[in-house]
Computed example of a mutant assay.
Amino acid sequence: MIEMMIEQRRRSLGGGLEVGRILPFARRRMVGPFIFFDHMGPMDIAAGVDRSLDVRPHPHIGLSTVTYLFSGEVVHRDSLGSEQAIRPQEVNWMTAGSGITHSERFEKARAVGDHLHGIQAWVALPKGDEEAAPSFSHHEGDDLPQWDAAGVRGQLIAGQAYGLTAAARTHSPLFYAHLELAAGARAEIPTAYPERALYIATGAIEIDGERYEAGRMLVLGAGASSFQALAPTTAMVLGGEPVGERFLFWNFVSSSKERLAQAAEDWKAGRMKLPEADHDEFIPLPSADTSPPPMS
C-alpha cells in the first residue's frame, strides 16, 4: 500500500547547482529519522566551472548528513579537520551534534569536468544525542555490504537491512540502501521498520499494480514489501523508527525552537569555527527559513 507520493520540486542552490527536493514536504516532514532528502543532478559540469558552484562553509546542528554519489566527485572539509573526497558508491557520514561547519567543493569538475549525480540526506538525531560531540567518517568497500541476485544489485548505505549491517554509526534504528534493477527484476523492501519509503532516482517501477516514474518518493504502508522494475532502474529504500517532532531552520535541526535560535545567533556572531583548510569565505545566515539550505 502507498500512503503518499511525493514528487521532487526543483530548487536552485546557487551557482548553477540544482537539486530535486523531496523532504521535507508540507504533508510529510519526515520518514523515520530522515528529515531531508535531495536528488542532486544529474548534471554535466564543464572544466573550468566558476567557484560559485561550490558549497561554501556553512553550519549544522542536531543531525547527521549523508552524502552518496552515483557519479562525480565532491571534496568535503570540516571544522574537525577532516578532508575527504567522496566518489561513487562511497559514503560521507557527518554527525553535527552540538555543532559543526563544513564545505563541499567540486575540484575535479573544475579541473577536468564531471558528471554529477547523487543523493543528499539528513538524519535527525534522537533527543539524547542532539548535543553529541560532532564527528565525521568515510565509508567504502566492505563497510557498505553489497549483494547481486536475480537482476538486483544492492548496496547497504547505513543501518540494518537484508540481513546485513553497514559500518557508519547511527544513533537510532534505520536503514538506507541503493538498488540497481534490470528491467523486469523484483526487489524486496525491508519490512521491519514502522516508517519506510522508496525513491525512484532513474527508471520506472510498478508497485500495487500502479506505475511510478523517476523523481518520485513513495511513502509505504505496512503491506508494501516488494516492487518490480519496468525499465533499468536506480532506487533508494529508506526508513526507520521515528525520533519525534523536529523543527528545521536553514541547516539546523532540533527538537527545540530555542536551540535553533541559539544556533542562528552563534553563526551570525561568528562563534562557530570554520574549517581550517577552508576558512576564507562562508554562507551568511539567511533572513528567513524559506531560503534553500546548502546541499548537505
Results as ranks from 00 to 15, higher is better:
197 A>Y: 03
291 S>K: 13
23 L>S: 01
143 D>F: 00
279 H>F: 14
220 L>C: 04
265 E>V: 06
91 V>F: 05
232 P>R: 12
198 L>C: 09
93 W>P: 02
293 P>N: 10
187 A>F: 03
271 R>W: 05
35 I>L: 15
132 A>V: 15
39 H>L: 14
234 T>W: 02
26 A>N: 09
207 I>P: 07
171 H>M: 08
160 Q>Y: 12
253 V>N: 02
32 G>F: 02
194 P>L: 03
53 L>I: 15
293 P>V: 11
264 A>S: 13
288 A>G: 14
181 L>A: 05
127 K>R: 15
64 S>R: 12
181 L>I: 00
146 Q>Y: 02
195 E>H: 07
210 E>Y: 07
271 R>P: 03
122 W>C: 04
173 P>R: 14
136 F>Q: 10
249 F>I: 00
148 D>I: 10
228 Q>T: 15
296 S>I: 15
202 T>G: 11
83 E>F: 13
172 S>P: 09
22 I>Y: 10
188 E>R: 15
155 Q>E: 05
178 H>R: 14
184 G>D: 09
271 R>G: 09
111 A>H: 13
237 V>R: 06
168 A>I: 07
110 R>M: 07
126 P>W: 11
81 G>A: 06
209 G>P: 00
211 R>F: 02
155 Q>A: 11
62 G>W: 01
86 I>K: 05
17 L>G: 02
199 Y>W: 08
276 E>V: 09
66 V>F: 09
120 Q>P: 10
249 F>T: 06
65 T>R: 08
281 E>W: 10
131 E>P: 00
214 A>Y: 01
230 L>P: 00
147 W>Q: 08
81 G>L: 07
44 D>F: 13
125 L>Y: 07
118 G>Q: 12
117 H>F: 14
243 V>R: 02
208 D>W: 03
17 L>W: 01
227 F>P: 01
136 F>W: 11
129 D>Q: 14
101 T>N: 05
5 M>P: 02
180 E>T: 13
193 Y>N: 03
251 N>C: 08
122 W>E: 01
273 K>C: 12
196 R>T: 06
77 R>L: 12
17 L>Y: 03
216 R>V: 13
288 A>P: 00
